[in-house]
Each structure stands twice: as C-alpha cells, then as structure tokens.
Design a protein around this nucleic acid. Structure first.
Lengths: 125, 125
DNA sequence: TTTCGATATGTTTATTTTTGCATATCGATA
DNA sequence: TATCGATATGCAAAAATAAACATATCGAAA
C-alpha cells in the first residue's frame, strides 16, 4: 500500500444501478424490476418472488403496474383464484423485455467491474 | 417498428449510477459527489458549486464530511474568513480521487451506452 | 475594528418512499 | 357451494431523505 488511500481501498465496494425511464422520469425498467420479473417467471408467483426478495407485495404490484401502463400491453400473465390462489408468469413480451435486459447486463457488467478494478489500482499507486 | 415494443422505445431514456460504499453501505463516493468535487475545485467554493448544482449547502457539507471520515484524511482544502468569506479547493488526494473516478467513467460510459443501444435494437426486432 | 460572505453545524420542518393494515375478488377443487 | 391462498387496491402509519431555518465562526481588507 504505497499511497494514503491504500489503507481503506480494500473496504470499498462497488455498486451500480441501471434503469430506464420515460420523459416524466417514471422508472419503467431497472435492475430491481428486472430481477423481480425473472423471479416471478421462475416461481410462477408474485407473492413467492416478493417473499424471496424481501419486497412487499403492495409495492411490487404497484411498480409492475407502472411498467405495463407505460408500454400499454401486459408483461404479466396473471391468474386469480383456484385452489392455490392463483399464479403469475410472464407474457411473451415480458420475456422479451427480460431477455433484452439480460443482454444489456452481459454487455456492461464485466466492463464495469474492470473499470472499478482499475480505479482501485490507480489509487494504489 | 416491427414489434409491440416499437411504439414506445423512442421515449425510453437511459440512466445509471455508479457508487462506492464501505461495508456499512455508507456511500463514500459516487456520481453525485464526483460531480460536486470537480465543480468545487473548478469554482474554488463549496457554496458556488452547490448553487450551480442545485444542492443545499447543508447537505453537501454533510456528505463530503462522510467521505473524509471514511478515508481518514482531508480531500478538501477549506479556508474560512477573508474578504470573500473563504474558499474551498481539493487537496492532492482529493484530486487523485476525482481523477481515478474520471478514468472509471471513461472506461464504462461508452460501453453502457452501447449496451443500451443494443437493448433497444433487440426489442425492435 | 468593523464588515462581509463563505464555511460550520444543530435543529426543525417538509417531502418522498415504504411499509403495514384492511378488505375485496377470484375460481379450481374438495 | 364452501374453502383457501394469491391477486387487487385503497388508505393510514412510519421511516428515510432532503430542505429550511437559525446562528456562530472566521479572517483579509477597508
């Protein structure tokens, strides 16, 4: 550790968030919703996904509604009732959206990590 | 516009934030502080920088204090009093930190934009 | 030695976000 | 047709953030 920074650099953690909005700054897609949509499709249930991610159902429901309002068509295939109460999965469009965001992250994640590594390295010398 | 998404894609704006924290999740550096530090150094004044960026002095002062507390040494060279009230610039370490974050952004910005462009393109076909 | 504007900081008030609570709906299955 | 658990949604409570307000301090220059 050659520089003054050296001491603390190992305690620094990287965070980043990518999100999309319309011109009214309404968040229409982002890391949180992306993760949530993936998990809903995997679990087949909004409630199960919320429980696992630690978000309230109320909040998630409201957020996802905003995305659909923006696009004007459903991303979620919701079913109420039945012995198990109901279930939710993604529509074709929902899946496409998630997949496109997957690709987005594949494109940027490693580069951001690389940028961070260089940042630390630069402060170290 | 071949897909259902087509209609709305042109209204989508990209946003992202990169920040660093310690293990207690205290924000120790990020896009906001980066911008602020640059402007303080440029203007030679915290107040002037706050006014220009639209942040309150109180808030900025508190935030910057946190960074210095984390690193354990000053990033800002502050002078009080004098005919013009005082001024603030960056210490050598402050400049190094800003410069390293500049490099970080140079590394990632274009890639993120590229990822976004691909995202839109993918939804368009 | 008075002045003036920026820095310094505690306290309080507003705003914004989230959470929590309550209650209604739905419908396959027992 | 009664049940059960997830979806649907309004509303109030609370928690987290930010803005405002109020002073105090500092020190070069007039």
């Amino acid at each position: 550790m050659e520089t003054k920074f050296g001491e603390r650099l190992k305690d620094i953690r990287l965070h980043y968030k990518i999100w999309l909005s319309d011109d009214k700054e309404t968040g229409i897609m982002g890391d949180g919703k992306w993760q949530m949509l993936k998990l809903i499709d995997e679990k087949g249930s909004m409630k199960a996904a919320c429980d696992e991610l630690g978000y309230t159902y109320r909040r998630t429901w409201g957020n996802l509604k905003k995305i659909e309002k923006f696009f004007g068509f459903p991303l979620l295939e919701k079913q109420r009732g039945g012995i198990d109460g109901g279930h939710t999965t993604l529509t074709e469009e929902g899946k496409r959206l998630v997949k496109a965001f997957d690709t987005f992250h594949d494109t940027v994640d490693s580069r951001i990590q690389q940028g961070f590594d260089r940042f630390i390295q630069e402060l170290n010398q």
